Amino acid sequence: MTAAPRDGGGNPGAAAVTVRPRKVLRVAWACAVLSVVFFTVIAVLLRNSPTGVFFRLADQIAMVLMGLFVAGGVLLLARPRVRADADGIEVRNILVTRHVPWDQVRGVAFPDGASWARLDLPDDEYLSILAIQAVDGAYAVDGIRAVRALYAAASPDGAQATSEQS
């Protein structure tokens, strides 16, 4: 989690908070590297296989490319990030990035037993925040507190809503 002073606009004294998951990031990178290594080893060993099937260079290249595609898919899990400042919050999950102004947020919650935090929105909707995950422990607690502090500072009813959900 990083906090930095704002560059301009809005409230110049307010800090911007950026949170990314830690453990999932490490696991995703390790799995991506292992999948590329695994598919590369399979590709090298294909030529020497006594199965009666003739594997050529194109088959070996295809196996390595499959490993790269699998690694790319696994690395999508490392993509989540949340950025919050005085104007609103930007939530980047695996495929979609969404910016929500604070006036549309009804609360910042981390329900009991949940794997990640969420933004409560109008009409009983919510937006999952995959960047703040329970497996990160104290880091996740610091991240949710920083986001809640920005929410409370940005909205007059924010302090009440966040204290009810703590």
Rank of each mutant, 00 (worst) to 15 (best):
R26E: 03
D120E: 15
L65I: 13
A30F: 05
M1Y: 03
A114H: 05
R6S: 15
F38G: 14
I89Y: 00
R81T: 13
A84N: 11
P111H: 12
N48H: 14
A71R: 01
V27S: 07
R148G: 01
A161L: 09
V37N: 05
F110E: 07
G67K: 02
G9W: 11
A153K: 09
T162D: 10
A154K: 02
S35V: 05
A71L: 10
V108N: 01
R79Y: 02
R148C: 04
W29F: 12
Q133R: 15
I132W: 00
P50V: 07
G52H: 10
V82N: 00
T18S: 14
G8F: 11
V44M: 15
A71Q: 00
G107W: 03
A154R: 06
V74Q: 09
L45V: 14
F54E: 14
V147G: 09
V108M: 11
A58Y: 01
V96K: 13
V64R: 10
G137M: 09
L119T: 04
A152G: 05
V70N: 08
G73N: 04
V108W: 06
I129K: 02
A153W: 05
G113L: 11
A161P: 08
R26K: 11
S49I: 04
A153D: 15
A140Y: 01
A30K: 01
F54I: 14
I94M: 12
A32V: 01
G137L: 06
G8D: 08
F39Q: 02
R81D: 06
N48R: 12
I42D: 14
A117F: 06
G113M: 09
I89H: 00
T162P: 00
V96R: 13
R81N: 06
A28N: 10
F69D: 11
D123M: 03
R56P: 04
V91H: 00
R92F: 00
V91R: 05
G88I: 02
D142F: 08
A153N: 13
G9H: 04
P101E: 10
A140M: 00
P12T: 08
S49F: 12
D157K: 08
A3V: 09
G8K: 02
R81Y: 03
K23N: 15
A32D: 04
F38W: 11
Y126K: 07
R92W: 02
L57V: 15
W102L: 08
R148W: 02
D112P: 07
D120N: 14
E164V: 12
F110T: 11
A28E: 02
R98M: 02
Q165M: 13
P122K: 04
M63K: 00
A134N: 13
L25Q: 13
R56L: 10
I61M: 12
S128C: 04
D7L: 12
G73W: 09
Q165P: 04
F39Y: 12
V27M: 12
A152I: 03
Q60A: 15
R22P: 03
P122F: 09
R26F: 12
E125A: 11
V108G: 08
M63G: 05
A58T: 07
D103T: 10
V96P: 02
T97W: 01
T51A: 15
V27C: 04
